[in-house]
Simulated assay, not measured.
Amino acid sequence: MKPLSSFLRFAISAAAIGAALISAPAFAGPLFTVNEGSVPGTAANLVVADRISFEYHARVEQTIVGGLGGGNDPFTQTGFLTKAAFGSPTGGSVPSQLNALNGYGIYGLFSITGQSDTLAGGIHATFQTLTMTLYIDPNQDTSLSVSNVAGSPVNVGGAAGDDFAIVTYTLDVGEAHIFAGLAQGDFKALLNATLTPQGQLFFVNPNPFFPLESLSGNTNSFIGGSLTDSFVAMADGGGLELFQAAVPEPGTIALLGIGLFGLGMTARRQQRGQRQA
């Protein structure tokens, strides 16, 4: 079996995928309203959207017990995501102060544990736990990075003292794939979402707010993995967050993940064609 570290690098950036996803009306969720005026230093403004695009960066630590297989090989994943834009149900991004000049940023710190197995020369990972806290960075002056040192936390630097938590998440169900032959994959998870008091001032409609969130997208690169040995790999990608009022119909999250992966493959083929032209 070919080690994952020899896979071709997927050249499209997470930002490009995020921009493509936010413009796709097929991935619509229920509407929600954000009160940007609740963020210190921002102007009063209400944003009505149905999704949020994001980018992520993470370290995956996989322990292989006697060769990857059997579904009992534990892994941990540590990383962060940054919100890119709010999206409209008709396609395109919704004007906001998120990542704008004199605006604010949103980031999340997450940790995942689970077990992995082989799948057609790649890896299938089943999530057992996922915890994440979402923060607002009022002055966009927080820096984030994750290293390849096993066991190390996300490095939160810069001026993070004024950041505040708005949502905490726990896992309902989730999984991820790294596909054979390419340094890429997909992921999907259904999360339980709990707003903090400051989060209730930011997410103002509906009230009470949605208790669930589906998170789905593409892994664009997965560097350092193996099918035969324990490893530490670095991963990055992007996707969409859609809020949910109830557990989706069976297969809904899976279909979203398939759709996102297909969009990524289309972008990759287009980029390959441009290089050959």
Rank of each mutant, 00 (worst) to 15 (best):
G264P: 10
Q97W: 08
G105I: 09
D162M: 00
T133D: 07
P153A: 09
F209P: 10
N205V: 11
I136H: 08
G103T: 09
Q270P: 01
S6C: 02
A11Y: 08
G251C: 11
L144D: 07
P138W: 13
V232Q: 01
I22H: 01
T63Y: 13
L240G: 01
S53Y: 01
S152T: 13
N220E: 09
I106D: 03
A20L: 10
N220H: 04
T196G: 12
G29R: 06
F261M: 13
F202Y: 15
L98Y: 02
D236L: 08
I253H: 03
P74E: 11
Y56T: 09
T228Q: 13
A159M: 07
G37T: 07
G259M: 06
T78V: 12
S214E: 11
F179W: 13
T219I: 15
A246S: 14
Y107K: 04
P248R: 13
I64D: 00
A160Y: 09
N218A: 15
G259F: 10
G70C: 08
P153C: 06
G92F: 04
E61C: 07
S6R: 03
T194K: 07
P153W: 01
T133F: 03
K188V: 02
F75K: 04
D73C: 06
T82N: 04
V247C: 05
L8I: 06
L171I: 08
P197M: 05
G18N: 00
D117Q: 03
R275P: 01
Q140W: 02
K188D: 02
F110T: 03
V94W: 08
F210Y: 15
E241A: 14
V232W: 02
D172F: 14
I136S: 09
D73Y: 05
S5Y: 15
V173N: 09
Y107P: 07
F54V: 06
F7Y: 15
V34D: 05
V173P: 00
N72K: 06
A254E: 15
Y135S: 11
A125W: 00
D163M: 05
L263K: 12
T76S: 14
D172H: 14
L130F: 14
T131R: 08
V60S: 12
L21W: 08
S221I: 12
P95L: 07
L191Q: 09
A180C: 10
P95M: 06
T33L: 04
T228E: 10
G174P: 03
D73M: 12
G161D: 08
F110N: 10
F187T: 05
Q62L: 15
A180M: 05
G158T: 03
R59K: 10
G91Y: 11
G41Y: 12
G108F: 13
L68Y: 06
S145P: 08
Y56I: 00
V247H: 12
G67E: 02
G79N: 01
F80Y: 15
P25G: 06
L242S: 03
N102F: 13
T170M: 04
G122E: 12
R268V: 05
G92C: 04
L191H: 01
S116D: 14
Y56W: 09
G273L: 10
G151M: 11
A233N: 07
I22Y: 00
A43R: 05
F231V: 01
F231I: 03
G70R: 02
T131Q: 11
D163C: 07
R272F: 06
F261Q: 12
L240V: 14
Y107A: 01
Q274E: 14
N35M: 07
A165N: 13
Q115T: 14
G67P: 04
G181Q: 01
V34G: 07
V167G: 13
